[in-house]
Design a protein around this nucleic acid. Sequence first.
DNA 1: CGGCATCCTATCGGATACTG
DNA 2: CAGTATCCGATAGGATGCCG
Lengths: 124, 124
Amino acid sequence: MEVSVDVTVKAPMCPSRGVLEHVTSRWGVLVLACLHERSYRFSELRREVGGVSEKMLAQTLQTLERDGFLLRDAKPVIPPRVDYSLTELGREAADQVWALARWTERRTADVQAARVAYDAARAG
Amino acid sequence: MEVSVDVTVKAPMCPSRGVLEHVTSRWGVLVLACLHERSYRFSELRREVGGVSEKMLAQTLQTLERDGFLLRDAKPVIPPRVDYSLTELGREAADQVWALARWTERRTADVQAARVAYDAARAG
DNA sequence: CGGCATCCTATCGGATACTG
DNA sequence: CAGTATCCGATAGGATGCCG
């Protein structure tokens, strides 16, 4: 178990940077985008996101929970059931991320075309 | 020099994921946010972003240029001068990212408060 | 000035095994 | 089911040196 990392060494010059990095982290974006629609259980979320390992999903959820973006509701039942949903703060973040994700989907074809053009310009 | 990596192995299930990851990459976000305001030269951008190494900035700029987000204008003068500016596609991306960055700045204090509360709840 | 190549370390992140 | 712990390979990313 990792303890007591000296955060003073690599602390970002601006504290908002750390927040932005959590929101825009590889799996953070996708988790927020998913939860934008509705609340999810752990493994349900894992399937929905797709391609994320158990470890990284758990880690991502913890980070986002700590930042106050989402609520973790662990029901005391057997088998365990844990639901994740957005807080008000998280909803605001998810709105932004959702918009970005939607835009990306709409424009993906253009990006792919740009890549082809870029590569062709150098290979030629 | 690295060549011919087998992309079929780790290709994202959805091509838009790759695009989203470029836009939301650690330095990509900040570069787009900077260029949202105006165009920049390389080292000017480096100072403005702050904390980014020469290597990573160059790499980030290439990725974003290849994706069609920005224009690289290398003037044939001594000493060299290279200007980076957004394309129309890049402007759309930068708008999204800019909004997210602004939101993050506004809400950073709330996130920090949430972290303190979260940590206090476990430290007991 | 604006890169590129090299080296090297830290962190990311997947696979596996284990637990309540 | 929903995690945690551990191991380990892959990648991010900094430092340095060289070049047009």
